[in-house]
Design a protein around this nucleic acid. Structure first.
Lengths: 311, 311
DNA sequence: ACCCAGCCACAACCAGCGGTTGTACGCATA
DNA sequence: TATGCGTACAACCGCTGGTTGTGGCTGGGT
């Protein structure tokens, strides 16, 4: 099916006749007639009843019309998503399940008229390059990675400290605990196969390990969170870390436990990054929104790496 | 833009390489390469970075991908809307602003998973023919028109009695009234240019006029409800009837008044019609829903034509 | 009553889009 | 260094989808 054909259908339905639609589309009446005939052949139904002074929609045509319009709108949005200038606000997040996505969902609920596109870049280096080139508008990242200060044309604000929780199966030694201290975790196997070396969040976990003497295994291929949850649920000696706001969908009955960590609580420092000169009109709205909902950071009893910028 | 091209893009993005996508689509790798190149040329952006062992999405490609998927879903829905068997429930209403649309909005809220298509047929005769032929599944109509009993293979249930209200401009003689009686309306000019002779709702107003000695003018072309409201707002001697649930969007400041009518209150008897043997799975759900929300009909102090079937 | 205006469908023709095969190139890996 | 894998470019060609030309139908004006 061709979008030009759909456009022709909508034009003909609106005009009530092929001739006028043809003029509108700058083609001949015969071309419109052939396009409509082809569409009717493809769909297997008659869309118009031809009359001596025009063409009016059949019932099938009436039912098809709103879907055709929606199809054209979807095409318009798709094209707009890559149009330079006046494209949707383009946001980089770490994963689709992170707290960052939750923030963006909230923002979307508050401002449904603002078009958003979400992308997932490799790490903060890529994100910074994309921000400076204008390929993306904002990024949610922990900044800055050790020894790599932010370039001066990129601004940032810390928007959320997300507490890490321990995730265990029902047979884990700590499964019954209301909460655990970081010190208690030393000696336990913590498995995080999703960690990709070289990223800023890998650096975060490196610091966490170094600070509290934990054991985090990043070995083995990452088959996705489903496989991770399956394994953790079935392996008594295995646990993993997970942001408190991470949305999980796992099969019921696995008996997974989310256990708060204290003494101190490791928090992941989400910051919003953007280019100083980015003119996108939705950027200010997003910054205002996040400023309004942002919880305080550096709260007592929490831990984050030294290099996490606190502004 | 061609949907086959979009499908190719989605397949290539999913596969991570053109070769595999080509196999999936049963075309050659060269064809995929050309399609993607054409799409990139159309959009004016690069969607993939070609690597020696595949092709991965650029940032633009990542942003475009969900829109492309949505485009394909929209196309799927469009085709499904006219597919014989297992198509969306097809509902006939009088106008998009009527109380019937409100009922369908409620139903959609209660059952968002049920696909609906709304069409607007000329009158109950067309609706009955469409119901019997299977072209539509259900119809909201006042039944039956005088002297025309429902065929025995069509069933109906009265789902809503909608009170009529008087709509006037701020300078109308009755503009200040909290309510008016039908008797008070005799002698006033009531203008309803939307009435189409031969329809069952024209018959309704004919009966209303005959019963209470009213004057309803249906003269003049119908330029739509906006023009009607404009004229009524500006003409002190003119009023019109409107269903109490009719949703209006009129420019603010017109000072339009909606005045309840009593003694008795004319009500428009909306019934649901369907074919006895219609197997559509959503039909029973709709009937159950309407049965649950249906207000009683034939309430004391209301008036409807004799021929309105009371079941 | 008849003719013409207006609109759609069919036929013939042709350009170019979009497919195929064949080939070259680049980069990983053994 | 050779080989495998994946992409891009070139040449070729069939068929889709446009155009012009024409005929048929119907309702309204003369």
């Amino acid at each position: 099916m061709d979008l030009d054909t759909v456009r022709t259908f909508v034009a003909a339905a609106g005009a009530g006749q092929f001739q006028e639609a043809a003029a509108e589309l700058a083609v001949t009446q015969q071309a419109v007639s052939k396009r409509i005939a082809a569409l009717e052949r493809d769909l297997g139904v008659r869309l118009f009843t031809r009359t001596p002074r025009g063409a009016e929609l059949t019932i099938d045509g009436q039912a098809f019309l709103p879907h055709a319009r929606e199809l054209l709108r979807a095409a318009e949005r798709a094209v707009a998503s890559v149009r330079a200038g006046s494209r949707p606000l383009r946001v980089d997040v770490i994963t689709s399940r992170s707290a960052q996505s939750g923030l963006m969902r909230d923002f979307h609920r508050a401002h449904p008229e603002i078009e958003l596109d979400v992308v997932m870049l490799f790490d903060i280096e890529k994100a910074l390059a994309a921000i400076r080139s204008g390929a993306i508008d904002v990024s949610f990242r922990a900044v800055a990675a050790p020894g790599r200060p932010l370039p001066e044309d990129v601004e940032s604000v810390r928007v959320l400290d997300e507490a890490l929780q321990l995730l265990t199966g029902p047979a884990h030694a700590l499964a019954g605990a209301r909460s655990v201290t970081v010190a208690q975790l030393a000696g336990h196997r913590i498995w995080m196969p999703g960690i990709v070396p070289g990223t800023e969040w890998a650096a975060y976990y490196d610091d966490l390990v170094a600070e509290f003497g934990l054991t985090i295994e990043a070995t083995g291929p990452n088959f996705g969170s489903d496989a991770l949850l399956d394994t953790v649920a079935d392996t008594p000696a295995l646990a993993t870390f997970m942001g408190e706001q991470t949305r999980l969908v796992w099969p019921a009955g696995h008996g997974l436990r989310r256990i708060p960590v204290t003494g101190p609580t490791p928090v992941y420092p989400h910051s919003l990054l953007w280019h100083r000169d980015n003119p996108h009109p939705a950027l200010a709205t997003l910054r205002d929104h996040l400023a309004a909902v942002a919880a305080g950071h550096g709260a007592p009893g929490t831990w984050a790496p030294d290099w996490a910028i606190a502004r």
